[in-house]
Design a protein around this nucleic acid. Structure first.
Length: 223
DNA sequence: TGAATGATGCGCT
DNA sequence: GCGCATCATTCAT
């Protein structure tokens, strides 16, 4: 099973290197994927691949950990204080990025979910580069941007992920159905999904809205 | 355990 | 407007 999946991925890798556009168009998640209840979207994102067409080249990694933040009634959700300039993307249509600065130094990437006017998003907490690097110079770009700060797991944690990918608030509110940044399905299924409370929040701890791939080494924090 | 670091939002004038 | 507490984090001690 594991072997055939890796063969499958290698085949896709070759396909993609030779037929970039065709591959992207067929695998990219459509807006309808995000236009659903957030608690369905979040676990469904596990095993999908985030692809960023960065100024330095294309980077991609497998998503292994996410958290859901849902609506004005969720005290941990930024939208709990209502519509503000910062949280505007979450109130907008689904399938857009929502990136904000946290603790003065780290950025966090979210995927906006649910219909326009219904503020919700999924926070990307961790991802994993698949060996061999399946797109372009992913490893090189990431280790350069990460500046050797966390060589072993440079994508484990929302702040580390954005730092390694080179994502900042400049990439806020981008359309995930266009080509700069998107998520794609490569047919990889996650068989061991675990669910816990969200990390780092002081409110809304009872909601078990963190989802991660229990078989991944790249998951951040406690398992 | 705490320092680094800055935008945001709230509660006042 | 102005000041201050808060914050979906990370890393070194």
């Amino acid at each position: 099973m594991t072997f055939s999946l890796s063969v499958f991925n290698n085949l896709l890798t070759d396909l993609m290197n030779n037929h970039n556009l065709l591959y992207y168009q067929s695998m990219k998640l459509p807006r309808s994927f995000y236009n659903r209840p957030t608690l369905e979207v979040a676990p469904d994102l596990l095993g999908k691949f985030i692809v960023y067409n960065s100024p330095n080249g294309i980077i991609s990694a497998r998503i292994v950990e996410v958290e859901a933040y849902i609506g004005q009634d969720d005290p941990a959700c930024h939208a709990s204080h209502g519509l503000t300039e910062r949280t505007k993307p979450m109130f907008g249509p689904p399938g857009f990025t929502y990136i904000y600065l946290i603790y003065g130094m780290y950025n966090c990437l979210n995927f906006v979910t649910e219909p326009e006017g219904s503020p919700a998003a999924v926070l990307l907490r961790a991802a994993e580069l698949i060996e061999p690097a399946e797109i372009a110079d992913g490893h090189k770009i990431i280790s350069h941007l990460n500046n050797a700060k966390s060589a072993k797991h440079p994508l484990s944690g929302p702040g580390k992920f954005c730092r390694s990918f080179g994502l900042t608030t400049e990439q806020n509110n981008l359309d995930l159905t266009e080509d700069q940044i998107f998520v794609e399905d490569r047919g990889l299924a996650i068989k061991n999904i675990k669910q816990t409370g969200r990390i780092g929040v002081r409110v809304g701890k009872k909601r078990l809205w963190r989802f991660f791939d229990a078989d991944s080494e790249a998951v951040s924090g406690k398992r």
